[in-house]
Design a protein around this nucleic acid. Structure first.
Lengths: 211, 211, 211, 211
DNA sequence: AATGAATGAGAGTTCATTCAT
DNA sequence: AATGAATGAACTCTCATTCAT
């Protein structure tokens, strides 16, 4: 975590540094990011950087934390009131549509999110886990459990597997957003994807007539 | 692709280099791999390396090719005769069990496989695609399509989404294998996972009684 | 151009680096010069070098600039007052004598000057031209034009050809200075050369009696 | 000089090597030429190269020798009969026109010729001098001396200086040919240059009216 | 607290030449 | 005589981090 010096900075400077770091990590990824470039773009002294952060990883972990906070906010906080009324499909729809909006607002966050999966082998990943462990791969778990409790979802369904499927689908969507250009991934495409998913979820995948 | 020089080497030397490269890429990943370390460990001169390969990417692409060849062999070739008789679930079971065996045989290959997803942004990834395009993300697609044709799977099912789910599940398994130690991921766990998947696939996820 | 870092150095260190670079370029030429040798001789860290200069070319261009500045100073600035009173021959005499003095003062500069002609095909040459364009090949042009305007030189004379002859003669002198040892190229030799040139310039080369 | 093995080769192979070397030296210059590329293009084994030549310099010196032989042939041999009838101006005209033709025939030779001047500081240059000393810088000397003997040129004219002027002019022409494209350097331009030179040579450069 | 110069290990790559076959 | 694999020194340049001011 950043040192006290960092949090004593003016909000403007702190924001400038965070913003520059987002740029850097989004553009070059964690691996190819460069402290030199960050301090140059943020217009702070290199020595100052190491008075704010222990090292490059320290900054990265902080940036990820900020991102998670924002995304959590965007999905949960903003709609918290409605969450309990939603079916799983409706929730998925909401999450995925929100994902597109977030991408439009600030594509850097999604870029860095995707990058996270690539870091599992690096030491920095374990540090990340120490702080934000729960957050990364269990987005849908509490919701699924609630649905089971409410009798909507079959208790025989393996929560982890279902959660993983949905998380993966989110990643799939993310990679679509990042590979192509935004215009192609319209909200109507999202609806189609969720419809197709709902099709599977409601009937299974097998041809009933055949059995 | 490696130069003719490489293929003219004795099998012992060629094997030593390939083996060292597998070690290096598995341990450090593509990004942090080092030609200097490879030549040191393989006990060849640095100049020799560049007489065998055009550059680091050339070696990496070759290693990936070798891996794909081995995995293809292991999954498809070895059981080709049985494939048409299998249901999707049975095929999944076969693939995932095989994955565990492969991991036990040579965990490096799985480590490097997982690494591939991390490289989508790097130039080397596009080179990889030029050689092995089909292999990476459509493992189950042909099988699903065949099952639809045979009337086993509902034609209303979105092939891409289903394929992506299964591919993701394979990656999930891989990451489980790599994160923990092998002993925890037994064949019986695989059976349980596939059973749970089959549960979802055959009935959907919703509580029929509730509807 | 060197980075601000370089100009912030103490004059001693800056001088040491410049001096080492002069040694290196004079001894090995641009092509065979080595950053590694320079930093070793100047006793600075390799990393420091790249904090002072963008790359090897950057240093070279700077060194050339320093040289041009010094030579310009020596030929033009020091005698500026007298220039307009001089005939072309007197000017030549002055330039060539000055060349010998410069060589005695610091032969490295002349060595590097001569090297410049060898670089026309290299990218660094075009960079050089962007900074010091005018300086290299038109030393005598303005003077010749002035002499024509003053009615001293025949307007029928092709300025470029005459200028090129004189520039070449300067290079000839330079190569004489560099090939042999200094002692052989005395000021009296210069006088003889300029006398011989003046002989041609005043009468042409043909035997008048014969025609 | 090449070893006996080289001269024992079939003419085809010898020619192929010479030709490839011309390509290489013309394209990359002596400094940046690469033995590896030469053997690759000439399709001979690297080991063979060192059985034909002692080293890279050995090949270079041989190539220069071949070039000099060709150029001498082209200028002197082909017109030997007419040489004694020509005035200096006519000879210059002939030489410079011939230079253009040579460039059209094989620009590589001119490219390498120009490169020679750039090598004065390199060890290979001294080796070159040991073989072809006279040839490089005294093209016009014998002719000037003959003209003086015939009473055409004023005996007061310094032969070396006049020769150097003309040699330099040849280099100037060469650099024009190499820098621009060939079409711009027409034979009529040559005539104009020689006319301008003749203008200076016949009258000197000074304004007679003024004196 | 802020600065930015200093550091040197390490990266990938090229090269002319040797030598065993 | 022909081969081409082996060699390792040398190259330019980048990097995260330290530390004196």
């Amino acid at each position: 975590m950043p040192k006290a010096t960092f949090f004593n900075l003016t909000e403007e400077k702190r924001g400038r540094i965070l913003n520059t770091a987002l740029d850097e990590f989004a553009e070059h990824g964690y691996q190819d990011s460069s402290v030199s470039r960050i301090v140059a773009r943020a217009e702070i002294a290199k020595g100052s950087f190491y008075q704010y952060f222990n090292d490059k990883d320290d900054l990265f972990i902080f940036v990820i934390g900020e991102m998670i906070a924002r995304r959590k906010l965007s999905v949960y906080e903003k709609e918290r009131a409605r969450l309990s009324e939603l079916s799983l499909t409706e929730f998925l729809r909401l999450v995925f549509h929100r994902q597109i909006d977030e991408f439009a607002e600030d594509p850097r966050i999604m870029k860095i999110s995707l990058e996270l999966i690539r870091l599992t082998a690096k030491p920095v990943f374990h540090q990340l886990m120490d702080y934000y462990q729960v957050e990364l791969n269990s987005l849908f778990t509490p919701f699924i459990q609630e649905e089971i409790a409410r009798g909507e979802i079959d208790p025989g369904v393996n929560v982890q597997i279902l959660n993983f499927m949905l998380v993966s689908l989110g990643q799939y969507l993310t990679s679509l957003l990042l590979s192509g250009n935004v215009d192609n991934i319209t909200h109507s495409l999202i609806d189609r994807i969720v419809d197709d998913l709902e099709y599977i979820f409601s009937r299974g995948i097998y041809n009933k007539a055949a059995n």
